[in-house]
Design a protein around this nucleic acid. Structure first.
Lengths: 196, 196
DNA sequence: ACCTGAACACCGTTCAAGT
DNA sequence: ACCTGAACACCGTTCAAGT
């Protein structure tokens, strides 16, 4: 898995061939079939590993900055930073490299859910401090996730420039708007974050 | 191009091989090299065609519903509907099938920009009616685009369920929050959409 | 201008065979 | 248990050759 990761990082996801991985390991291409059912299984293992690192990155960002609205912003920045720095890895986790489902590895879906739960927990926290409306936090989380995921994806695909500018600046702006959006109290027409 | 599109729709993007396209056309695989420099060029043509249809779909949704906040919502729904109904086509346009850049076809970047301009124009319209803050509309557009793109991508990759629910419902919720978010007047703490 | 067939260098995968 | 080598069915791409 680490050999596969190294290749993916340096040569891109397209260069991940069983033969190349085998060669890096000083072993035959077919030897990998003793450890993984097929290439998809290797990719699933890579994705699972990715979700673990990903979750850790989000969590430390959230805790270092000290929760609250600023914590969510830090988490969002950590999110797109991860995606930018590990573009190929992020692609394997999300971008449909494993497009021909179904996902067979239960660890993969477990780690994926765990990463998502970090976001849900953050939103619950924001609800408690009153920064955000009290409603289904997982719905809010899907919304936030989509926004940040979209920024990450478009950045990786170089679809944001030319004047799209810095992805980090964009995610900062976007998350401010998002929190305002899910913070607006529909009855009073006021931001929940601003009223005491 | 239409033959390639048909294959992509029915068999998925992975099944798009030059040999298969040639066979569908009753022609040799290598014959395609008289019309496209290589496979990437074919995919770029498919993507260009996709952006044209995409732009048309967004535009009619925007105009049919009659602009304004409801128009943006309709546009967002049309967006994810397009992505869901033409998953493979959408993938070619965005999802990094053309990952190994650079994009060489100038028509492709032109059509891509044109589709994006539909969104920008909509936001300018919302600014004029006072539904949304007056600031750089393209920055707002990148934000909105990211959100909807994220929902579309996660839906296509089946990453939203199980309890993520209907993507259309999610985009409706998300766009309401987004408009609230970019409509909040920072000075008064009130939603610009609500004050007269 | 457009197409063909053979050829080349790559894939993932299977399988009989070795230690 | 782990690995190997040959083999198979696929790829994209090139090239000399045909009309």
């Amino acid at each position: 898995v680490t050999a596969a990761l190294r290749r993916i990082q340096t040569e891109g996801v397209a260069a991940l061939t069983l033969r190349a991985v085998g060669q890096d390991l000083g072993v035959s291409r077919t030897a990998l079939y003793r450890h993984f059912a097929d290439k998809a299984a290797l990719l699933e293992a890579v994705a699972t590993d990715g979700f673990r690192r990903f979750r850790a990155a989000l969590l430390t960002a959230w805790e270092e900055v000290g929760r609250g609205r600023a914590g969510l912003a830090a988490m969002g920045e950590a999110y797109v930073r991860f995606a930018l720095e590990h573009g190929s890895h992020y692609r394997v986790m999300f971008g449909g490299v494993l497009y021909g489902r179904p996902v067979s590895d239960p660890d993969l879906v477990k780690e994926g859910r765990a990463a998502f739960q970090v976001l849900v927990a953050a939103l619950v926290d924001l609800q408690e401090t009153g920064a955000v409306r009290r409603e289904d936090p997982s719905r809010q989380a899907f919304f936030v996730w989509s926004t940040v995921h979209g920024i990450a994806m478009l950045s990786i695909d170089r679809q944001l420039p030319p004047q799209g500018g810095d992805p980090i600046a964009l995610v900062r702006f976007a998350l401010e708007c998002v929190v305002d959006g899910i913070g607006v109290d529909k009855d009073s027409g006021q931001s929940a974050a601003r009223k005491r």
